[in-house]
Design a binder for these strands. Structure first.
Lengths: 337, 337
DNA sequence: CTGGCCTTCTGGAGCGCTCCAAGGTGCCCG
DNA sequence: CGGGCACCTTGGAGCGCTCCAGAAGGCCAG
């Protein structure tokens, strides 16, 4: 089969142990010997088997990333951040998608554990953040991504309440007081935090007459659902006046919302102001560039990966719950009424 | 440390070999025994160590994907196709990015080989398609993705010449005869094939007065480069008349091109028709939806993964060079002059 | 010269598993 | 009632490596 450490040893005229030493503790072997071994490796084009090394007692140099879907720009960007750190530290990244399915998440984690990854990054399904406990019980490092974690674990998230507040303050300052929120129950905590931020900002402003922000629930974070939500809002006009300021839980929803409103003759931003969330590249490219709440996705990925590696390597690691502050980016989809 | 096969054996009151059998050849073990062993596994929450199994002689259940950048939608979508197949077949996907750097590509391949993946999918750098030879020499299955391969290997690509032809025929049929191509040398073969398709379609039409399609070279596939190319074309007007039909090697270039032309008072599609390439989601969302050449990225990923798995599993595997036919999607960025 | 110490290298044990030859066991048939 | 034959199960060998105790060699001080 492949060339083994034994072949290298024979060729260099040393023992297996010495070859292993130049691999793992090069400083203990005499320079001349080391060179000879290195040459032999090179001549034979030797690549040490990682699985065998692990059995021998070495830590694996791989980490796992479990997310909803690589195809989605939000996650792809996080993955990019993770991948950059992994590559820099000579780790390999194994990734699996859950499609937001609890069963698949559990299967993914098992698969990664079977691979003996030395750490796992999890962007949990709506209800799956707890699964990490079992990972940790097995002695594998883990950090929660895009989800607020507890004190005994590392996590990297974005403060969604503040995002909701920032968007709302922006809308209020422009003079919009009739507000709506469009989001899904699927993303769970995240969207409801944004809505809560919205409510608290509205309450704090004292401008609030009736208690409620009009909340429209959508099944998924897509353009089509955004259009659907626009139709819902428009057809509600009989009982509730059309809101003039709308926060969408996600940029794709905002794109759909704007499209839906516009095609019914409602002008954005003249009649209605729309704010998106995530600030994916798309927001700058559509017909009406969208005011959005920027989430530092790449940095989140990077930070999470760094926390994970620190947990893997450092004895003295202390858990941290990093919470990024989202940033309002004003574009053309919001203006004074 | 972790619970091993030994622990399971002891708990179930059988030997190691029997536990191994229920894992790998369940049909040879008596139903009652099997149940007992499975229960023991469940009680101990046993997860067999993949690395150890591999050393023992089993094939690894992991494949590697080497690409330019997970963050780019084109690659992310391919990755999604690959990932879906991998998950379905209970394989794990390890991915690495090269940033189109030969050195990083070579490092990535070594890393994957060290992991003992049983197959590798490579989207090669401009000049790196040959690196797969060494992978195959090591007995690891490999398929070339987004790059035309030879007879002794599997590959999945898109027929770029035909894409260029389709775009050009479309432009010609609208009445555009002064044509230009915008693309980069970096993507190598791919862009030059598209340009060649353009030239041959133009030649075949008999409408060609002067020999050349005006070709503008850009350093990267970005919106900014597209704008830059627009400026180049506009400033060339002294010596060469502005082309009325432009094919961009990539959608982002097309977005930039349209933006650059529009901001200089040139109307798209009234003055100049612009065709993009890839048909990423973006093309439908920008101010002027872009006519583009659709590449079936998800299907490419899926197909490549399936070929790879077939090469891994089937004795009788015969190499195939799959070439997808790109499809012209007409939108609003092209019209009669 | 010799003992002790340091540096460098060696080869055996063991990691968790798979594979396989060989060893039970029970049953049927002659 | 014994031989033959399934059918199951067992435990040793080995996968490629790491780790480690100890051997070998060289050097210096007493």
């Amino acid at each position: 089969m492949a060339v083994t450490i034994e072949d290298v040893a024979r060729r260099a005229g040393v023992s297996r142990g010495t070859v292993s030493n130049v691999l793992n503790r090069p400083e203990v072997v005499l320079e001349a010997t080391r060179t000879r071994v290195l040459e032999a490796m090179h001549e034979l084009d030797f690549i040490a088997s990682q699985p065998a090394r692990m059995l021998g007692g070495l830590r694996s140099r791989s980490i796992g990333l479990v997310m909803h879907d690589v195809g989605h720009p939000f996650f792809a960007e996080i993955a990019r951040g993770v991948e950059d750190v992994a590559t820099r530290e000579n780790y390999v990244l194994t990734l699996t998608s859950t499609r937001d399915d609890d069963e698949r998440q559990r299967a993914s984690l098992r698969l990664l554990l079977a691979q003996q990854v030395s750490g796992i990054l999890l962007i949990p399904t709506a209800s799956g953040a707890d699964d990490l406990r079992q990972v940790r019980e097995r002695g594998v490092a883990a950090v929660l991504l895009d989800h607020e974690g507890g004190a005994n674990e590392c996590s990297v998230a974005v403060d969604d309440v503040r995002g909701g507040i920032a968007a709302t303050q922006h809308l209020l300052s422009l003079g919009h007081h009739r507000l709506a929120f469009v989001g899904g129950p699927r993303r769970g905590q995240r969207h409801s935090d944004r809505l809560n931020g919205m409510r608290s900002a509205l309450a704090a402003s004292g401008k609030q007459r009736r208690p409620a922000v009009q909340a429209v629930t959508v099944p998924a974070d897509t353009i089509a659902c955004g259009e659907e939500a626009a139709r819902t809002l428009l057809s509600n006009r009989a009982t509730r006046r059309l809101p003039t300021g709308i926060l969408c839980g996600n940029d794709l929803l905002a794109v759909g919302m704007i499209r839906g409103l516009t095609s019914s003759g409602v002008s954005v931003p003249d009649d209605v102001a729309v704010v998106g969330y995530d600030d994916i590249e798309l927001t700058t490219l559509v017909g009406t560039p969208i005011t959005s709440i920027r989430q530092p996705m790449y940095e989140m990925g990077r930070t999470a990966a760094e926390l994970l590696l620190s947990e893997i390597h450092e004895e003295t690691h202390t858990h941290r719950n990093v919470r990024f502050v989202p940033e309002l980016i004003v574009r053309e989809s919001t203006a004074r009424p």
